[in-house]
Design a protein around this nucleic acid. Structure first.
Length: 552
RNA sequence: GCCCUCGUAGCUCAGCGGAUAGAGCAGAAGACUUCUAAUCUUUUGGCCGCAGGUUCGAUUCCUGCCGAGGGCGCCA
């Protein structure tokens, strides 16, 4: 019996008891609030449903709990249902019924943990979105790890997700970038406010290889050529860095495409201003064009087109937002650093002005900054800590895992000493080792002649076995909840728990018989449990973009 | 000044209203003739920043204060 089936059963029992009430209370399976108690004495599962219902139906929680518990006991597979504390119901499943879950997991394989809870939701997740004017730094690294994991978790929950990188390849920063590369190519110092660091001279050298006559070109062509070639190279570097980091984007959206005039002679930005105007959210004042974002909760109206005729950055934001809507995304999720939280109001306002519901169609996840002890600033790129350096230093697995195991809104200081340790201190190794151990156990079982031909779940009676089974049963709910709350760190924390329970089980229960002892049904059955654990660990690690080695 | 996030064990952090607030590390004591000891067992350690409020019940929700970080533009 898996948790969902149990929740359905509890619901049924509660409703049976309350059937003669009028009106009979609404009760969904989500209301059951099934949880696994920390304390083993409290059974395999516990529910506070009686406490919640007592308020609604106006009866004593303990009496209500007793009635529901009695009803539950009549059902197959329930070994115990006891009322405890103010009205909790502690439930124990009988071993056979609980163990059936193991077969379900193994048969589901790679798909165990996935669900269709979010089926039909078409979601765009935008993250990283760095200027293509230099290498990615530690801040981008956090959003890359978190964003990619979030995308994977949402997909596992059944949503249809597109990951997107918005390339700020237009504007003043790009021009500065071009000037900086030209200066380096000419052997001159970087311009005021320009980009510095060895990577700029590297780019200049590479551009000169591609365009040997660069320095003979007229100035404007020279700057433009240098800018665009260096941009190409830098973007390719960023893509390669992310790819090594196991992060891939479905869409690389160039800001330039918003500025480029289309067939009608109008750019997408021109069109979007007109669309907002048609919606009645635009006004003119002192020669500038404004969007009345205060109608949608912004603290001030925003200029979209300056008095000098130039569009503001907000104009590109607007066009970009409309593009996402036009491309059919029902929900737009943005991952932004804390230094961008000022965007929240205007993005929401933009959604409102575009005719969307800001509370439904836009979600902005603000992440706090991350730092790391012991990291060296990049020599190549100047005063930053580079993703590439971090990755070479710590490895993709340790870096991705340790960034994904904390909620985005907690300020984070990573400890490089721990991340480079290959022991219990380092959670990623703890989890990966547990996975490798499931494979080692399976190899040993094969050598000892233990097979999965026998499966007798009623033999899984050890307390570590019921704990492990219950833990494995939690996986789909953890994934669904992580997706719902946009908190992939819950998957990581869960995997650590599974790994711990598995290690304790391993310590207590043998899959291969010791010495010359005969092979019994329990051994084959435990091999099933072992394999089921391997599936859960592998599936979970995969959602975090972390490898699941079969040997370590 | 206004806005956002955070404040939980010595450290790094979990805990979307529930039972005695948890994990890892650090400190103390143990377990390898054993399917991998990269593991496991036991143990020390808390005015959950402070003060109110809502609730049968608050670390969790609300308000104020204190502390840390970040943000406010016809910049991008």
């Amino acid at each position: 019996m898996d948790p969902r089936a149990l929740a359905a059963l509890i619901r049924q029992s509660a409703l049976a008891h309350l059937a003669d009430m009028s009106p009979s209370p609404e009760l969904s399976e989500d209301d059951i609030a099934l949880e696994r108690p920390k304390n083993r004495d409290h059974g395999d599962w516990a529910t506070s449903i009686a406490l919640k219902l007592a308020k609604v139906v106006g009866s004593n929680p303990r009496d209500l709990a007793t009635a529901i518990a009695d009803n539950l006991l009549d059902h197959e597979g329930i070994a115990a249902a006891e009322v405890a504390g103010p009205g909790f119901i502690n439930i124990s499943l009988d071993a056979g019924s609980a163990g059936e879950l193991v077969r379900t997991i193994v048969q589901a394989g790679d798909t165990y943990g996935s669900s269709s809870d979010m089926a039909g939701q078409v979601i765009n997740v935008e993250f990283v979105s760095a200027n293509p004017t230099g290498p990615l730094h530690i801040g981008h690294t956090r959003w890359a790890a978190l964003g990619d994991s979030l995308v994977r978790v949402l997909r596992a929950a059944g949503a249809s997700v597109t990951s997107e990188f918005y390339i700020n390849d237009q504007g003043v920063q790009m021009d500065k970038f071009g000037l900086s590369v030209v200066a380096a190519a000419e052997g001159k110092p970087a311009p005021e406010d320009g980009y510095q660091g060895e990577y700029i001279s590297d780019l200049a050298r590479r551009v000169l290889e591609m365009v040997p006559d660069l320095l003979e070109m007229p100035e404007s062509a020279r700057i433009e050529t240098a800018r665009d070639r260096a941009y190409e190279l830098q973007l390719a570097d960023i893509t390669a860095s992310l790819s090594r980091f196991n992060v891939r984007f479905d869409v690389w959206f160039s800001e330039r495409t918003l500025h480029t005039p289309g067939k009608s002679g109008e750019s997408l930005i021109d069109e979007s201003v007109e669309r907002l105007r048609a919606g009645g959210h635009v006004f003119d004042d002192e020669g500038a064009v404004w969007v009345r974002t205060t109608d949608f909760g912004d603290d001030k109206d925003r200029v979209i087109r300056r008095a000098n005729g130039a569009y503001t950055y907000f104009a590109a934001d607007a066009a970009y937002y409309l593009s996402k809507s036009d491309r059919g995304f029902w929900k737009k999720i943005y991952l932004l650093g804390a230094d961008h939280h000022g965007y929240i109001h205007r993005l929401k306002a933009l959604a409102g002005a575009a005719g969307d519901d800001p509370e439904v169609n836009v979600e902005i996840l603000i992440g706090q900054l991350v730092s790391i002890n012991g990291a060296k600033l990049s020599k190549r790129a100047g005063n930053i800590i580079e993703l590439d350096d971090l990755q070479t230093w710590l490895g993709t697995d340790a870096l991705r895992y340790s960034l994904a195991r904390y909620p985005a809104d907690s300020p984070l200081t990573l400890d490089s000493d721990i991340l480079t340790k290959r022991s219990n201190d380092n959670p990623v190794f703890y989890v990966q080792y547990a996975h490798a151990r499931t494979h080692q156990v399976a190899r040993n079982a094969a050598a000892a002649g233990v097979t999965t031909d026998t499966f007798e779940p009623s033999t899984l009676t050890h307390e570590t076995e019921s704990a492990l089974i219950a833990s494995l049963g939690d996986f789909p709910r953890v994934v669904a909840q992580s997706a719902e709350l946009r908190e992939p760190h819950r998957v990581a924390r869960y995997l650590e728990e599974v790994a711990g329970v598995y290690h304790r089980w391993y310590d207590a229960c043998r899959v291969s018989p010791q010495g010359d002892n005969p092979i019994e049904p329990v051994h084959g059955t435990r091999l099933w449990l072992n394999d089921a654990t391997g599936h859960v660990l592998r599936n979970g690690l995969s959602m975090l973009g972390v490898s699941a080695p079969e040997r370590m």
